[in-house]
């Protein structure tokens, strides 16, 4: 697996996000350089079935994600998924998906640089996200594995609630908007930091 040596969209905000985080309450940090490949394929066809075989998991339905080995598959639209993996996996994921399509109509596009991933974890994460996101993030309507494309801090974002004992969300944000989201986060989360000092 090739290590990526470049500069991630939030490289300049690493410190800011660390300072913004409040231990035990809210943790915000970038997970840079993840492999992201867009897959377009008719959901009911033979090609989709081959893709599912290749991934080792059925393609997830609307609003959900699936864990497929060391890959994560997010539903993005009725014939669109985002396959997410460790950094450097794009070439082999692309190749595997192309192979599964086997010449049938579909699309496979490496979009690893298009978005970066911000992880937001901790008991405050739901409330924090709701400062800029109108979705109902209560576990009863947005439980582990659920994903949604929506607006966060007035930028397009894909939200995913990960499995875990404490709330953990991934926010996939367009690289050009990532700094805005980080700066917004620092402002929105500032009150939790003050609370921690008082406590």
């Amino acid at each position: 697996m090739a290590e990526i040596t470049g500069e991630s969209p939030l490289a300049s905000r690493t410190e800011l996000l660390a300072e913004t985080s409040v231990p035990g309450s809210l943790d915000i940090g970038e997970i840079p350089f993840l492999t992201q490949v867009t897959l377009r394929v008719a959901p009911e066809g033979a090609a989709a079935a081959r893709v599912a075989d290749t991934l080792g998991a059925p393609l997830p339905g609307p609003g959900t994600s699936a864990v497929a080995g060391d890959l994560l598959v997010l539903w993005m639209g009725p014939d669109e998924w985002l396959v997410v993996g460790e950094q450097g996996r794009a070439p082999d994921v692309e190749e595997a998906l192309h192979k599964a399509l086997d010449g049938e109509h579909g699309a496979v596009v490496d979009v690893s640089g298009q978005r970066t991933v911000v992880e937001i974890a901790g008991p405050r994460s739901e409330e924090f996200l709701n400062k800029g996101c109108s979705l109902d993030l209560h576990p009863s309507s947005f439980g582990p594995g659920r994903c949604a494309q929506t607006l966060l801090a007035r930028t397009e974002a894909t939200l995913l609630r990960r499995h875990g004992a404490t709330p953990v969300f991934w926010v996939l944000v367009r690289s050009s908007f990532a700094r805005h989201l980080a700066d917004w986060s620092a402002d929105a989360a500032a009150e939790y930091g003050e609370g921690a000092v008082l406590a």
């Binding site: 109108s134 494309q149 929506t150 607006l151």
Partner: peptide
Amino acid sequence: PWCGPRDEIEF
């Protein structure tokens, strides 16, 4: 029809 009810500003 795919994502369920969402706020108008997403549209």
